[in-house]
Amino acid sequence: MDKELFHIIGVTLRMSFFSTLISCIIGLPLGVIIETGRFRGRRIMKKTAGTLMGLPPVVAGLIVYMLFTKYGIFGSLGLLFTVEAMVIAQVMLITPVVICLTASVVSVSGKNLSETAKGLCLSKSRSLLLFIITNRKALLGTVLTAFGRSIAEVGAVSLVGGNIQWKTRVMTTAILLETNKGKFSFALALGMVLLLISLVVNVLASLLVKGEKTDD
């Protein structure tokens, strides 16, 4: 079991890392643009992102499943029951969260920064960068939330990943499996391991912020 447990933890971290990374690459700039940009459809985009935060994971999983099933649009890619498919479903779930949280972080400091950017005659992409870098500490919370959601999710990943041993099994689906086996206490122990991983990630992240404080 030990060797298998490490494999499961490895898959879990890989999946959570890449889904967090991708959804941040998409969501951070979009969040800033939605909050500070002046263009039509901005409100609708904000409302849409807010609504999608409530997307049930199983539904996201179902959509990805239907897209990648044998006779689905992307069926020929053979991605169903792979970690890649799990990441895609996770990105669907987490990106709206990143967008909304980024928007609310930026809304606090947005006005002043807009003027600064204007004063410095920064290009659009550069002012975007300015927003993200200035708010990096607060945005770290956004990233951690995204990571937390990703690592704790079970409905979508069991559907599109299939919970296949030595391949797509992650902590949450392993916990579900042990529960179905009737090994409740072992399942609970796995849950504690998952919490521990989450704790380590949180501590590392807060150390990152603290380390920065001394630099300032």
Partner: peptide, 25 residues
């Protein structure tokens, strides 16, 4: 041994889910 024999897919799911997987794969 699922760790070595890649053709052997150990799904850890209910009967319905396993049948869908067999159908897909």
């Amino acid at each position: 041994d699922a760790a070595v024999d890649t053709w052997y897919i150990s799904a850890g799911q209910g009967m319905g889910a396993c049948l869908s997987m067999a159908n897909e794969q």
